[in-house]
Amino acid sequence: MPPSDIPATEGPQGVGDGSKDQPLIVFDQVVKRFGDLTVLDHLDFSVAPGERVTLIGPSGSGKTTILRLLMTLEKVTEGCIWVGGEPYSHMRRGGHLTPAGEGYLRERRKRVGMVFQQFNLFPNMTVRQNIIEAPVHVLGTSKAEANARAVELLDMVGLGDKIDAHPTQLSGGQQQRVAIARALAMQPEILLLDEVTSALDPELVAGVLDVLREIAETTDITMLCVTHEMGFARDVSHRVLMFDQGQIAEEGTPEQIFGEPKEERTKSFLRSVLDNE
């Protein structure tokens, strides 16, 4: 089912009016279906610049789908996503918003980076090559400059001595830290993190979370984070969104959501996560 044109050129409220505190990301009535399955059902939410948002919710509630839509790995079925006041899933053509073409998407998604659950490092490249590949071939950064930045980033994630290693020679935790460095090398405005510690052995989780805490403290990158690490979510996020059945069941500060959840669905979800630990 192709996404249809949207007649209005005006964005949803607060978008495109040039005001200073306009949201960075806006989901405007976003519907995502896979065949007959409606995963996101007229979803509305927005994220402010520099905000760190944690997405929680039961399996299948659409958290990964939201991040994949933002990374343009999936296309919206209905509705529109806006980034920085400009349409993102769509582009302006005449007086309409029409589903974005490949060229438009490639240009727009440069400001978005993603770290995957399974790391997805390129196994045929060294750590260094993994990190400089996109800056050199997408941003046109010189090799020397990209290299210098790779060294800095690897130091930050504590892997300065692994720059010439191959991913297969690294532990899962180390691979994930390289993947974080690789995403940051593109200097994204928005960083998407999808259960980045779920595939790791328990003793390797802390190292990765420490790196993310540092990024949260030292940069103003907007972060959307799907995680079951409630302690981490509480520490770094400004806001928690609880998803259920393709909609936001409840949202609030970490203190509100983890401390005194109002919705029964949130309570039972949090109980089930705690039981698993």
Binding site: M71, L73, R109, V112, E133
Partner: peptide, 19 residues
Amino acid sequence: GQWEAARALSLPGRRTWGA
């Protein structure tokens, strides 16, 4: 995941295939 990582980095098709 390799294709998706390449896409997430905005790599052009030439690099995705060739590298």
